[in-house]
Nucleic acid binder design. Sequence first.
DNA 1: CGAGAAGCGAGAGCGGCGCTCTCGTCTGGA
DNA 2: TCCAGACGAGAGCGCCGCTCTCGCTTCTCG
Lengths: 237, 237
Amino acid sequence: MAAPRTARERARAELTRDIKDVALRQIAGSGAAGLSLRGISRELGMVSSAIYRYFPSRDDLLTAMLIDFYSELADALWAAQDTIAAEATRTSAGFRRRWVTVCTAMRDWALAHPHQFTLLYGTPVPGYRAPVDTTVPAERVMTAFSGIVDEAARAGLFTSVRALPDGESGLVGQLTAAGSLLGEQIPPEVLARTVAGLAQVIGMITLELGGHFVGGFEPADALFEHAATRLAETIER
Amino acid sequence: MAAPRTARERARAELTRDIKDVALRQIAGSGAAGLSLRGISRELGMVSSAIYRYFPSRDDLLTAMLIDFYSELADALWAAQDTIAAEATRTSAGFRRRWVTVCTAMRDWALAHPHQFTLLYGTPVPGYRAPVDTTVPAERVMTAFSGIVDEAARAGLFTSVRALPDGESGLVGQLTAAGSLLGEQIPPEVLARTVAGLAQVIGMITLELGGHFVGGFEPADALFEHAATRLAETIER
DNA sequence: CGAGAAGCGAGAGCGGCGCTCTCGTCTGGA
DNA sequence: TCCAGACGAGAGCGCCGCTCTCGCTTCTCG
């Protein structure tokens, strides 16, 4: 993103921002499926075809939003961690507290931005396939979790972990390969639990947002916190 | 569903079936968002407005499909259990094996019917809210999991479970209330783990279907089976 | 500084969608 | 046998994503 020099470039950058702003409001209001280029252009007082000068297709606009949302979520998770970063994560209690904090931060963000969350982790939009540009911010979300585990591993918290049997499944290979991207110190068996744990967090939020808890576990605050706490224990031993 | 007597009734029942069949193909092919009443009518050689004699809106057709899919998934889960039903679930090993079997059956069904699965557990369709008719078959899916746990509880497998502290959160109350619908024998703390476990299974399948594992854990067979196995252990103690 | 290139918005138009309403026809029960 | 109700056809409403052409403006480069 070079600084806009000419008036044309400045106008273009501004309009691009405006389009994304309106798109954000549309998604926050009625979901990604309600995102309409015609609606945006109407709100911006321009003709629908003009939008295509800025985003060649609806999916490109969606991709831009996707990147924004991943980044926003990742920021929220890292910010939540920082509130207790002063406390070292060298102890078991510290690790657990930090893990639960990040899990809760994810749920809070999801409840505050349900449509954004479902766009990230819900049903992929029909013909849409997320381009590689989105994987970088998406990984920042993942590392918000794995970072905690990595730090705890460096502190030597996972000594009594039963080693994974390295069968012909290639699981250990997958895990060590993935682990080298996230932090060398995470033992494969611990990384497996971390991924499963993240899946559980996303699953519970998805179920809650999808209304699968109504009439049973609504509000799900207590259930969620309980599950996150147990998750931390599970990861650890 | 009374048996059709007149020719009119027979024709109506048949056409209703045909519409659902075509709708199923459309969803299986391009997802729920690609479901189009016009497309169905075209394939059926009739004019689009005629469809509305049978389903008053697109959402009503979606509801009918939803009920079918929940039932289909529940059937698959129960069928998978039945293959090892001869073996009693009185032992710890039996319980774990049965749990993993049902988890795997769910993943298998989801991989074979990705669009159906995402319709059930993915992003809710925009303005659509599932009517109560869908909760009955949806609960059959839940009970496919909780039934195993209930049986294990009856066999006295969960004796050494640390009791949940009954704080002011009301979690124990929620769990006992929900438990009374699923099987009186499940201790609240075990039910909490069961729900969290189901959330993890759904979460991992969602991530896999959403392509969040590509480049890291694809294929996810080994990771999934490992997670399901650990889940069974976690539920038990 | 002036001409050509490139960027831009407006407008018309394509085919698609869900859904509504009207109209003639057919069917089945009283 | 007759008539109410169910039915399919067709036209139409407003929405959508996307394309193409046409003039106007802005920038760049000789």
